[in-house]
Structure formats: structure tokens, C-alpha cells
Design a binder for these strands. Structure first.
Length: 257
DNA sequence: ATGGCTAAACAATTTAGA
């Protein structure tokens, strides 16, 4: 079973790229982020025509998350991150598909730092940490995938010194990620590629993709039952070179069926 | 270091991304 995450950066603007990638990769489950569309503008007809059932939580202009399942309807288990009724951002959705619990997240960017956006990022991360402490204990496989907007270590940044004070690499944010790992979660990409340079995002600016000036910010965290089934973890780098593509690459793991 | 690119909401610029 292939489970993927893809920050599409506009699900409607990106639809041809998304459909081509779905056809080529044939993932069983897909978490999408940055739909940038309200619920009624989600392209459900095209996604169903591609063979996928879906649930989604949209928002006008920004954010927005979805979960797709090939030949199945995801069973929604949660929509929105608990812990703050005033948080109106669409950044978390969760579903059960074929015995696996999948959470798809779009963690706040947090720039500029310092400032209210950075404070929001830290609060959101703290709420996620609470939720994931509960989810970790689930007996079934749990996969929390998405755009975490954090480079966990220096090797996950093309030029660490330039990002030192950025909200994606700040000590508080990296510490929060370490806090998740301390709960027991496995960073799937890093576990299977301990010594490789892995990037999942390349800025549209400055020809970043061609220069391999990337960041690793899209992650898969697996609980123990999921980790036992982990076979592969890869980045579909070539998609970043397609026409009208997202600034993020699709990322995926394969779990033993 | 800086400025550069892209999408969406709008209907020419602004906001946000990372």
C-alpha cells in the first residue's frame, strides 16, 4: 500500500499535474495540502473520475487539506485540530482507510519570526503534539503525513546558516519536532535513508530546483505498528520539473499489505 | 543579503507562501 502526501499549492490550478501524478504513481492513499479552495470548489468529479474517493476541508484562498483513497471512500475520523475552537484554519483531516489511520496536516508556516504568526505556529504544534500522543498508542498502524513546515536537522537544508532564524528552522520549532519523535514516532524518510540528502520542497525563486537548493519539510511520522510494515519511502523529485508544478514534490511511503 | 516566482481574489494590486 502506497500512502502519499502532496502539497499541491492550489488544487484547481494544479489539477492537470495532480491527475498525471495520480495516474503514474497510483498511490492508494493521498494527503493533499494547500487546496486554496473553498469546499464547493474542490474538484471532486475529476478526482472520482481518476478512481479516488475523497474527503476534504477547504477554505477560501488559503490552506485546505484532503485525503484521497483509490477505489474507496475514506472514513473520516477527525476534521480540524482539537484544542482551540477559535482556530478557523483548515489544516488537519484524518481518516481510516483499509485498516490504517491516516492524518493529513498542513502546519503553519510561521514567518515572520518573531510575531503573531510564529506564536500561532508554536501553539498549533503544541496542540498537534497533544493529539499525536493519543494517536501513537493506537493498536492499528497510524501515519501522520503532510507539510510540517520544519526542517528537522541541518542536513535537511541546502544552506543551514541562511535559515537559522527562519520560522521553518528555528530552535523552538525543531525542538517541537524532536518532541514528536520522543513520543516514539518514526521519521520514515530518514529511517530508510539515514545518510542521504533528501529535499521535498524547492522555492520557485532563483532556479532552486535546478540548483538542488531544497528543504525537507514534508514528512511521514509512523507509529510502531506502521513502522513494522514500512518497506519504502521516496520523493517524486521529477514532478517538480513538470510544467505548472507545485513548489513541493509528492512524497510517499510503501507499507506491507 | 537581496530579490526573485506563483496562486487566489479581484479585476490592479494585495496577501501569503517558505
Amino acid at each position: 500500500m502506497i500512502i502519499a502526501t502532496y502539497n499541491v499549492n492550489g488544487v484547481n490550478g494544479r489539477l492537470p499535474v495532480l491527475l498525471r501524478w495520480l495516474a503514474e504513481r497510483q498511490p492508494n492513499i493521498v494527503c493533499l495540502q494547500e487546496l486554496k479552495a473553498p469546499d464547493e470548489k474542490f474538484p471532486i468529479q475529476a478526482i472520482e473520475a481518476a478512481g479516488y474517493g475523497a474527503i476534504w476541508h477547504g477554505q477560501k484562498s488559503w490552506n485546505g487539506v484532503a485525503i484521497l483513497a483509490k477505489g474507496a471512500q475514506p472514513i473520516e475520523t477527525r476534521r480540524g485540530l482539537p484544542g482551540d475552537l477559535d482556530d478557523s484554519h483548515s489544516r488537519y483531516i484524518e481518516a481510516a482507510v483499509n485498516g490504517v489511520l491516516v492524518g493529513g496536516l498542513y502546519l503553519p508556516n510561521g514567518n515572520p519570526r518573531p510575531g503573531p504568526k510564529f506564536e500561532y505556529k508554536l501553539r498549533w504544534f503544541a496542540r498537534l503534539t497533544e493529539l499525536m500522543a493519543e494517536l501513537y498508542a493506537t493498536k492499528a498502524p497510524v501515519v501522520i503525513a503532510g507539510d510540517y513546515n520544519v526542517m528537522p536537522t541541518e542536513r535537511d537544508v541546502y544552506k543551514p546558516e541562511r535559515w537559522r532564524d527562519d520560522a521553518l528552522f528555528a530552535p523552538e520549532v525543531r525542538a517541537a519536532f524532536v518532541g514528536l519523535l520522543a513520543q516514539g514516532w518514526t521519521d520514515a524518510l530518514r529511517k530508510l535513508h539515514p545518510d542521504e540528502t533528501i529535499y521535498t520542497f524547492f522555492d520557485y525563486f532563483r532556479n532552486a530546483y535546478a540548483r538542488n537548493a531544497g528543504l525537507r519539510i514534508d514528512h511521514f511520522l509512523l507509529n510502531k505498528p506502521a513502522t513494522k510494515r514500512l518497506l519504502r519511502a521516496e520523493v517524486d523529485l521529477a514532478v517538480r520539473g513538470w510544467e505548472k508544478t507545485s513548489d513541493h514534490c509528492p512524497v510517499w511511503v510503501e507499507l506491507k499489505d
